[in-house]
Simulated assay, not measured.
Amino acid sequence: MKQFLANRNLKYLFILSLILIICIIIVFLVFKSPNYKKQIIFFEEYLKNNYALDKTTIKEFVKVFEILYKEFPYVTEYVYPIELLAIGIVETNFENIKGDNGESLGYFQIQAPTYWYLKHNYPEFYQRINFFESWYWDIIKERPDVQLMTSILYLYDIKLRYGEEDAYSIYNGGSEAYQDKILLRLSILENELKKFNRR
């Protein structure tokens, strides 16, 4: 009889734990959802107000975040629009250029080997934005959506493999100075996001 009661209590404890975990996940998603959407809007407004990017480029960036939010939500748990805003500012101040002696390309300064790695490991993302071309500057400079998607996937992949603590440093080849720049920019952007959300 004692064994029966113990098993029954264990079963109830398991069910209660499962319900609690489901509730925590739901609460997380409910609060995360508006925050992510607000960050998309903030990303868009920040670019419109601070950079001379054309409307089409900004629209392409926003489309990428919306695709991720709707179709690949597991990525949005690791990488946020505000992070990409900081990376774009620190890397190129949102200029679509070649850097590192022509080795790094675009707004977020991704190198060709990184792109090939990501395209091989995450093909469904590139298929979703209809990008089947090679990673050449003449092609990639016209595709801000591909540049942003690649940067997001790169940061996502780094965080999965190495953890979040050194992700920004690894993004730039292990530079702690770069990580400090990103963290400083993120701090500034987070304050601006708070003001933006109060409007």
Rank of each mutant, 00 (worst) to 15 (best):
N35L: 15
Y36H: 14
K37V: 15
K37H: 14
K38H: 15
Q39P: 06
I40Y: 05
I41C: 03
I41T: 15
F42P: 04
F43L: 06
F43V: 00
F43Y: 10
E44H: 08
E45V: 14
Y46Q: 08
Y46S: 03
Y46D: 05
L47Q: 00
L47D: 03
K48C: 12
K48G: 09
K48Y: 13
N49F: 09
Y51W: 03
A52E: 14
A52F: 13
L53Y: 01
L53P: 01
L53K: 02
L53I: 04
K55F: 14
K55M: 14
K55G: 12
K55S: 15
K55C: 12
T56D: 13
T56S: 12
T56L: 12
T57P: 12
T57F: 05
I58P: 04
I58K: 08
E60Y: 11
E60L: 13
E60F: 04
E60S: 14
F61M: 08
F61E: 02
F61G: 03
V62F: 04
V62H: 00
K63H: 13
V64K: 04
V64H: 05
V64Q: 02
V64A: 06
F65M: 01
F65P: 12
F65S: 03
E66R: 11
E66I: 11
E66V: 12
L68G: 05
L68N: 02
E71I: 07
E71G: 10
F72A: 12
P73F: 09
P73G: 02
Y74N: 09
Y74W: 13
Y78M: 12
V79W: 02
Y80M: 15
Y80P: 06
Y80E: 11
Y80I: 09
I82V: 13
I82G: 08
I82A: 09
E83W: 05
L85V: 02
L85D: 00
G88N: 07
G88I: 02
I89P: 01
V90I: 11
E91A: 09
E91R: 01
T92D: 03
T92G: 09
N93A: 13
N93T: 12
F94A: 02
F94E: 06
N96V: 06
I97D: 11
K98L: 13
G99Q: 01
G99H: 11
D100P: 07
D100F: 04
D100T: 09
E103P: 10
Y107S: 01
Y107T: 09
F108N: 03
F108D: 10
F108S: 01
Q109K: 09
I110C: 01
A112V: 06
P113D: 02
P113E: 05
P113Q: 00
T114M: 02
W116I: 11
Y117K: 03
L118E: 05
L118Y: 08
K119P: 00
K119L: 07
K119W: 00
K119S: 11
H120T: 14
H120P: 08
